[in-house]
Design a protein around this nucleic acid. Sequence first.
RNA 1: GGGAGGAUUCCCGAGCGGCCAAAGGGGGCAGACUGUAAAUCUGUUGUCUAUGACUACGAUGGUUCGAAUCCAUCUCCUCCCA
Length: 376
Amino acid sequence: MFTLIKTDGSARRGRMTTPHGAIETPVFMNVGTQAAIKGALDAGDLERIGCQIELSNTYHLHVRPGEEIIRKLGGLHRFMKWEHPILTDSGGFQIFSLASLRKITEDGVHFHSHVDGCKIFMGPEESMAVQSALGSDIAMAFDECVANPATRPYVEASVARTTRWLERCKRTITELNAREDAVNPGQVLFGINQGGTYDDIRVEHMKRIAELDLAGYAVGGLAVGEPTEVMYHILDEVLPAAPADKPRYLMGVGTPANIIEGVRRGIDFFDCVMPARNARHGHLYTHEGVINLNNLKYAVDDRPIEEGCGCPTCRMHSRAYLRHLFRAQEMLACRLAVTHNLYFYNKLMADIRDAIDEDRYDAFRAAWVEPLSRRI
RNA sequence: GGGAGGAUUCCCGAGCGGCCAAAGGGGGCAGACUGUAAAUCUGUUGUCUAUGACUACGAUGGUUCGAAUCCAUCUCCUCCCA
């Protein structure tokens, strides 16, 4: 259930209620692919960094430990001790990221496990069954995330198949939710718009899936190599075709600037591995730009990552200490850095919500897009 | 005291007459990363008045058109025998 609280231009303040609580939007979903935030954060840490909703991955949890194990243990929420909302990605992104290990057919996708090479078949029914066993609050449709660039004929055929898969996903989740042993019978399905960089395919596809009256609509297959301006242009074209009363999710995006621009165009949900991955690699976000803690210039910098930041890392530790931990390859470096970056992202979203609430989103955007994009 | 093996650029370590400022690691310096096969990957790493020059492979002296590579002596290290 999604409620649009107010708008400021095209930016939207909303609230989505789920069986595990409400989500204030716009929101950033913190990515824990394998039921863990890389960098050694657990559910308690997620609460400390202001996370509202966690995202896990269907393919990866199917490979390891297997959804039946998680079902037996009471579902993903109980398994990882995160009793707030969870979204599961469908495995569609792995069609893209594990392209060399899979073959696509009309029924679904044959993968060779990246772990042990064993054969894995995942189609819409399988993905929905896994997501149902995991018991996430939001299940994503099994789509093909199309690589960029892709020819128009390829994209047309792929999108048509993704649409057929979506219909199968919808049918399947309805059946699974009706079962007495459903882990989370309130699980809802988000559809995913595809179409590469072809505006007309994108818009037609969005219109087509809008008819299916799903709980939410994602825009997928972006930030896969196309110029940022192309991504923004596609959002400008596609979002007017998405149902206004349903949440919109821009999958896998992005930088703070991408998020600010996405919100401006009417996106409500984001997720991205970037803050966690960059943190593990020593790149930390500040309101003046991204700093690379590996750089020599921070060797004796006694300041926190960012003055005034309320995160547990900044309250306690200096850049110089963190740089030392990175250089010495101490695990603590990752944990402290990821804590900061995810706190930063969640706080950015809270600031975005405040700006929309107070009808000053344009000014907020104008003030922050450039500084947040800097490398310093 | 006798015998054997070593000494290579910041470190380890390959090279055993020219294609050597010298493989490969490590370390250093920097860059990339967007629904996570990523605590990963890439570049770079003698000096300079820089499409060239200079200084370098323990030291010194030789052989050679040419030496990190061959010879002699010396210094230091390791191992074996007494």
